[in-house]
Simulated assay, not measured.
Amino acid sequence: MADYSSKNYSWNDISIALGGRIIEGIEEVEYTVKQEKAVLRGRGSVGHMITRGNKDCEGKITLWQSEVEAMIKDAPNNDILALNFDIIWSFSPNDGGATITDVLTSCEVKEYKKGMKQGDQNMLVELPIVFLDIKHQQ
């Protein structure tokens, strides 16, 4: 096994860039990578191996309305659902620990919904995304 640091990162340690710009108005980011897997069966009652199928990548980002409006402005025909972008997610601790960067490639927004209620001081917009691949520890 490789040596690794057991450093845990906090929200204050991350920078997230969309379309080449560090986003200040982001409040949440998450992603999931899934792969189809099945047990290959033949003779006997015990499986012989695990087969692997397609991978799917999805997640969500929660942005301030102003960040969403900037994305819409940059999108083809002002349609955020037509925008394709990479998300670069870097963890850079202030204490000098190792910087870790993940790149989510070819992201696209699946849907969006805007809304506010009385007493809100800003609008947060949750954007579910799909993407093609993740490049870990770049």
Rank of each mutant, 00 (worst) to 15 (best):
T62I: 09
K55F: 12
L124M: 13
G119E: 08
E24H: 06
G53S: 12
G59T: 10
L83R: 13
G59L: 09
Q35V: 14
S45L: 10
V109M: 04
S90D: 06
P93G: 05
S92R: 13
R21E: 05
V103P: 01
G115I: 04
V130G: 10
L81C: 04
H136C: 02
W11I: 08
I88K: 09
R52A: 11
G19S: 13
W64R: 10
E36H: 09
S5I: 05
S66R: 05
V39I: 14
L83W: 07
N8V: 15
A82Y: 03
K110E: 10
D74M: 02
K117P: 01
T32Q: 11
Y31W: 15
K7E: 05
G96R: 12
Y112A: 01
E24N: 12
I88C: 00
G96E: 06
P93L: 06
S45A: 13
E36G: 03
N8W: 07
T99D: 00
D86R: 08
N94Y: 03
N54C: 02
W11N: 11
K135Q: 15
E111I: 02
N54F: 02
V29C: 08
D102H: 15
N54D: 08
R41F: 04
V29S: 05
I50Q: 11
M1H: 10
I26F: 09
M116I: 11
G25I: 09
A82M: 12
K34D: 15
M123S: 15
D56M: 05
P93D: 08
M116F: 12
S66V: 04
G25C: 09
K110F: 01
D133V: 03
Y4D: 05
A38S: 15
V33K: 13
L132Y: 08
F85V: 01
K114T: 13
E111A: 15
R52M: 10
D102N: 15
T99P: 00
V29G: 01
R21A: 02
K113E: 10
K73P: 00
R21C: 00
E58W: 03
N12D: 10
M123F: 08
I23G: 04
E111K: 15
V130C: 07
E58C: 05
I26Q: 05
I50K: 12
A2F: 07
T101A: 04
E108P: 00
T101R: 11
Q118V: 11
I88E: 09
E58T: 10
E69G: 01
I22W: 03
S5L: 08
I72C: 09
E111S: 15
N84M: 08
I23Y: 06
V103K: 12
K37W: 07
I80L: 09
K117Y: 03
T105P: 00
E30Q: 14
L18E: 01
A2P: 00
T99S: 00
N122A: 14
E126L: 04
E69Q: 10
N54M: 06
E108V: 04
N54P: 01
C57M: 08
S15A: 12
E67F: 01
K110D: 07
